[in-house]
Every structure is written in C-alpha cells, then in structure tokens.
C-alpha cells in the first residue's frame, strides 16, 4: 500500500505543477514509512519539502500556499503528532471556503498514518478519526485496499475541499493490485456480499471483518456475513450502508477508535434512524476500549479481532 500511495503522489506531482508536498523527513529520507521515497530526488526540494518540525506551522503555511492557489499535500508523521496542527485544521482549513462565501476554497490534503497493530510505543497508534469527522468542512477518507490507496489519494489531491486522508499504518505493507478507476469518494463499497448480517468497517478494520466473514467459525454457524468498506467517513454514504443493512436486518460496526462517542456511535444512530423497521436486533459495535491506546505488548487485547467481531454477531438476537 505504501508503494501505491507513493505512486499516487508521484503521479499527482507530475500531472499538476501546483501540487507541493510538505512534511517531516519526507525529502531525503522519503518519510518514515517511505511513502515519499524518491520524490524529492525526482521533483526537487521545492516540490517535496522537509519542513521545520512544527505541525501547526506546516499546516498553517500549507494553508497560506493553498490560499495562493497551490495544492499542498501535508504529511503528518504519526496520528498523535497531528494534534499540534489541530487548531489550524479546525479553525482555518475546515472553514476557509465557508468564511469567504466560497471565494477561497482550500484544496489541501493532510495525510496521516493512523491506527495501531504495528507495535508502536506511546503516541504512535492513535485512531483520531472521530475528531476529524466531528469537524464540519473536512472530508475524511481512509483506504483499506491498495487500489483505494492510489485512487482515493488521487481524488483527495484533486478535490477542491480539504481532505484528511487517514492511512492505516498496519496496511502499509499490504499487497494488492492497482486499478485504473475506483469508485468516487463518498461511496461505500461492498467487499463481500452476505445475507445474514452486515459488517460496517473502514481502514484497518476491513481485513479484520473479511477474516471474520471468511472464518471457519462463521461457516459453522451458517452465517453469510456482508462486509461494507465505508472508504469515506465524510461525506457518509447513508444510501449504500442502509441498503446493505436492510438486506440483512442485522449490523455490526467495527473500528479501532474508542467506542464512546466514536464513529460507531454516529453510524449506529444513523442506521437505526433510517432502517429501524428492517432491524432484527440493535446495531452492535466492536471497537477499541475507552482507554488511552495501550502499550505495544498489550495492544492485541484492545484491537478488535475476528473473534470479537464474531462474538458481536452472535449477540444479534438470533433466537427471536
């Protein structure tokens, strides 16, 4: 996946001279995850810039560059290190178009490696998507496949709105094929059709849900589980999600972020509001616990896995 992201950045730089990359260690080193590998050498320091270490400054200057008509793509080194930039994101990036009555759109992409499962020490494994989802004015995208990593990132950079692009760290090494076209952002995709219950997930939880659906245990119970990859958290694809939930009458939302006031709360509420009469059971959630992200030697207890997903499916009131 990291290579697909790299390819997307390279193609964007080549296609559009207004695209500029900014970040920490993204030049000579190619980024700590090598997503920008070779780009400074190919396009020069001014297109792929190692900035001073100051996330608010990076996003703030990128905002000014976008105000002048460039299309900056900012890399935050890790999820938790995007927090210093939060004020710029919330108070300016998300609002500039609205503040200026549409006169000054802000075409800017913020790439953030996020989530756990890579044995990172503290501050290297957060799932911060709820903060971004709760900020009106931002698109929030997160790929789960190699094809989407390329396709969605190209879409994000081409978008005239700011996009928070969340890259699931533990999928950086995932393999897959590039595809010429992927569905547009804002559209969820059914990764596995099913008839018994619908698993709603995104980013790093997609492979977990697919594993649960394909598992021996699911087959034994006679469950044919659908897996819907949301791809874009904002805007949210109510249509596809609700159509899939109505088909099965049961739904489980799965994500790594903490459950309390997490994305799953919003998704469960939306599904319930729209599909109540089709539901055979309340929408269940399988999420990270409501704790600071655990130390690496304990993270496996925190991260939703196939067993926890299947346990939630088992609780969907099949007996009635």
């Amino acid at each position: 996946m990291a290579r697909a992201l790299n390819r997307a950045l390279r193609d964007a730089l080549a296609d559009d001279p207004s695209v500029h990359l900014l970040g920490e260690d993204i030049g000579t080193l190619g980024g700590v995850f090598r997503v920008t590998d070779g780009l400074a050498a190919e396009f020069g320091d001014e297109r792929c810039t190692d900035t001073p270490l100051a996330e608010a400054g990076i996003l703030g200057t990128a905002t000014g560059m976008a105000m002048y008509g460039l299309r900056p793509v900012v890399e935050m080194q890790f999820d938790a290190f995007a927090y210093p930039a939060f004020e710029q994101l919330v108070s300016h990036v998300a609002r500039m178009r609205n503040r200026t009555r549409g006169a000054m759109p802000l075409p800017l992409t913020v790439r953030i490696p996020y989530g756990g499962g890579i044995g990172g020490v503290e501050h290297h494994s957060d799932s911060s998507e709820a903060y971004y989802m709760a900020t009106p004015g931002l698109h929030v995208m997160t790929p789960a496949t190699v094809a989407d990593a390329y396709g969605l990132l190209r879409q994000a950079i081409a978008s005239d709105d700011p996009v928070v692009f969340l890259e699931p760290k533990r999928l950086y090494w995932a393999k897959g094929e590039l595809e010429p076209d992927v569905p547009p952002g804002g559209q969820a995709v059914v990764r596995r059709p099913g008839t018994s219950a619908t698993l709603l997930c995104y980013g790093p939880a997609v492979p977990v849900c697919l594993a649960a659906a394909e598992s021996e245990a699911a087959r034994e119970r006679g469950w044919d589980l659908a897996v819907v990859d949301l791809r874009t958290l904002v805007p949210f694809d109510d249509e596809t999600v609700c159509a899939e939930v109505r088909r099965t009458g049961r739904a489980v939302v799965v994500h790594e972020a903490a459950g309390f006031a997490g994305p799953g709360a919003e998704i469960a509420a939306r599904v319930t509001e729209r599909c109540f009469h089709h539901l055979a059971a309340p929408v269940a959630r399988v999420t990270g616990f409501d704790i600071p992200y655990p130390p690496p030697l304990l993270e496996r207890h925190h991260l939703p896995d196939a067993n926890r997903v299947l346990a939630a499916v088992a609780g969907l009131q099949w007996e009635d």
């Binding site: 703030g60 560059m65 002048y68 460039l70 300016h92």
Partner: peptide, 18 residues
C-alpha cells in the same frame, strides 16, 4: 484566533516566490 494568520502569510509569500 491569535497569531494563526501568521503562518498563512508565510505560506502565501513562499508560494508566490515559488
């Protein structure tokens, strides 16, 4: 928001120079 316009000015000036 205090001083938050300053990095914008820097980025814009930088972009103009680029």
């Amino acid at each position: 928001p205090l001083a938050t316009q300053l990095p914008h000015a820097v980025g814009l000036a930088h972009a103009a120079r680029l």
